[in-house]
């Protein structure tokens, strides 16, 4: 849709933004795509775009695309408009714009004349790709998981992303539910799966500081989480995150709610191929933040305090 056609209505759209790294955004969104058909809610604000997906009131994921990730970000709505899209369709659609080995710039606009999300490539005058994604009015259910700290000292640890994925993949065979235990003495994190068999994986903070990058815990705590929800937090994290292997942060909040955070680099395409910073340094503005919230299983045996 051209700008003149929109302006004729007298209203500026809520959002007009432009991206120069579609693949990075596709990676970020793919990491929360744990099944084929998923409804997502997009919320736009002056700070950026947040995409939220949820399952069975037990698992929620958010992808934060801050406005710094965009080459251009013009927000002119009142309040924070929200709309629903099919995540799979949205990712497939974005993927169409991403041409390997080519930097592709796209413009995203919301809303279109029929409340669609409008996308178009802006690289070339003589070849143009465009898309119109139908949006829905999102469900009115509460999307907020109210993650609260569990106490004055945060209960958290940061582990190399590849190691975390490996641990969770390994826990597949015992299946069912996974108990995560944090204890201060000796400072360690334990993943234990009990199902068809038992499997326990320990991260000792002093023994593997290169795996367990940071650790914070003032008392022993343990909660059980359903394996399929835990798996969703790492099953689709993109290869680039594993290669960067920065670290994923896990925090246990009030009531045992588990928060898993990943960082996905949305680097400028021009630098990503020819030169990769050996220190893995990225400008903070070129990072998409991904958060998963997993509710614990209700379990009488949970050892608490």
């Amino acid at each position: 849709m051209s700008s003149s056609a929109i302006d004729a209505d007298g209203d500026a759209p809520d959002l007009v933004c432009q991206l120069d790294n579609v693949q990075g955004i596709v990676d970020a969104l793919t990491s929360v795509r744990w099944k084929r058909h998923q409804d997502a809610v997009l919320e736009i604000s002056e700070h950026g775009v947040v995409l939220i997906v949820e399952e069975s009131s037990c698992l929620q994921a958010k992808v934060y695309l801050q406005k710094e990730l965009f080459v251009r970000y013009e927000y002119s709505a009142e309040g924070r408009p929200r709309f629903g899209v099919s995540l799979g369709l949205f990712v497939d659609c974005l993927n169409t714009f991403s041409v390997p080995g080519n930097s592709t710039s796209i413009e995203i606009r919301y809303p279109g004349p029929d409340m669609q999300l409008l996308l178009k490539s802006v690289d070339s005058l003589d070849a143009c790709i465009y898309a119109e994604v139908r949006t829905r009015i999102p469900d009115t259910i509460s999307w907020d998981y109210n993650f609260e700290p569990a106490g004055s000292t945060p209960l958290s640890f940061t582990v190399k992303s590849a190691a975390l994925k490996e641990v969770i993949d390994d826990l597949e065979w015992p299946g069912s539910s996974i108990k995560i235990t944090l204890q201060p003495v000796p400072p360690s994190v334990t993943f234990r799966g009990e199902g068809h068999g038992d499997l326990q994986i320990d991260f000792m903070y002093y023994a593997n500081t290169d795996l367990l990058i940071s650790f914070s815990c003032d008392r022993q705590i343990s909660y059980r989480y359903k394996y399929k929800f835990l798996r969703a937090t790492t099953s689709n994290i993109p290869g680039s995150v594993i290669r960067d292997n920065r670290g994923s942060k896990l925090t246990i909040g009030g009531g045992g709610m588990l928060k898993v955070q990943h960082l996905v680099s949305v680097a400028r395409p021009s630098t990503s191929h020819t030169h990769i910073d050996s220190a893995g340094y990225q400008q903070p503005s070129r990072i998409a933040y991904i958060e998963f919230f997993v509710k614990p299983e209700v379990d009488d045996n949970t050892v608490n305090d």
């Binding site: 051209s2 070849a127 465009y130 898309a131 119109e132």
Partner: peptide, 27 residues
């Protein structure tokens, strides 16, 4: 749910041709 399209413009034409209408580029 979705409309997805690609347009390739100003390609070489063989056979019947027509001149493009002015200002078509803005649409």
């Amino acid at each position: 749910l979705i409309t997805l399209g690609a347009e390739f413009r100003k390609l070489l034409v063989l056979g019947e041709q027509a001149a493009e209408v002015l200002n078509g580029g803005n649409l």
